[in-house]
């Protein structure tokens, strides 16, 4: 099996665990974690399932913390946005370099392929 196929199977296993954690979480855990979720319809809970499956380690941590303190997650202020702003700017700077390099490589590859086809043509 190729490395990429391995990665895909691992991903599938991760999502399977996510669904196993996500179903009880959306059924009961959300009410424990967030009082505003009390009385949420089954459609809302269903909508939360993909997110719970995707982020199941964080979901477990949230659930565990809510059980430990026997209450919902306290309100948190959105402080400390400067590191996020810096991370955002840096990530775009790195992405710009990666994108430029990738595009240059792809265009060079296309030029070489076109030249090879032209040479091979009668």
């Amino acid at each position: 099996m190729s490395p990429i196929a391995w990665i895909l199977w691992l991903l599938l296993a991760y999502l399977a665990v996510g669904v196993a954690v996500g179903i009880p979480f959306v059924a009961r855990g959300v009410d424990r974690v967030d009082h505003a979720a009390h009385g949420a319809s089954r459609w809302v809970r269903l909508l939360l399932l993909p997110g719970a499956a995707a982020l199941w380690p964080i979901v477990l941590a949230l659930w565990f913390a809510a059980v430990q303190r026997a209450g919902p997650t306290p309100a948190r202020f959105a402080r400390g946005m400067r590191p996020l702003r810096l991370a955002h700017a840096l990530a775009w700077a790195v992405a710009a370099v990666v994108i430029a390099a990738g595009l240059a490589g792809a265009l060079r590859q296309r030029a070489q392929s076109t030249a090879a086809i032209s040479e091979a043509a009668p």
Binding site: V30, V44, L48, P50, G51, A53, A54, A78
Partner: peptide
């Protein structure tokens, strides 16, 4: 894009914290 779409509901925004 799936992870982002799946966590786009306000429930996730509030409980994960905006940061």
């Amino acid at each position: 894009l799936f992870v982002m779409a799946a966590t786009s509901h306000d429930f996730w925004l509030k409980n994960l914290s905006p940061r």
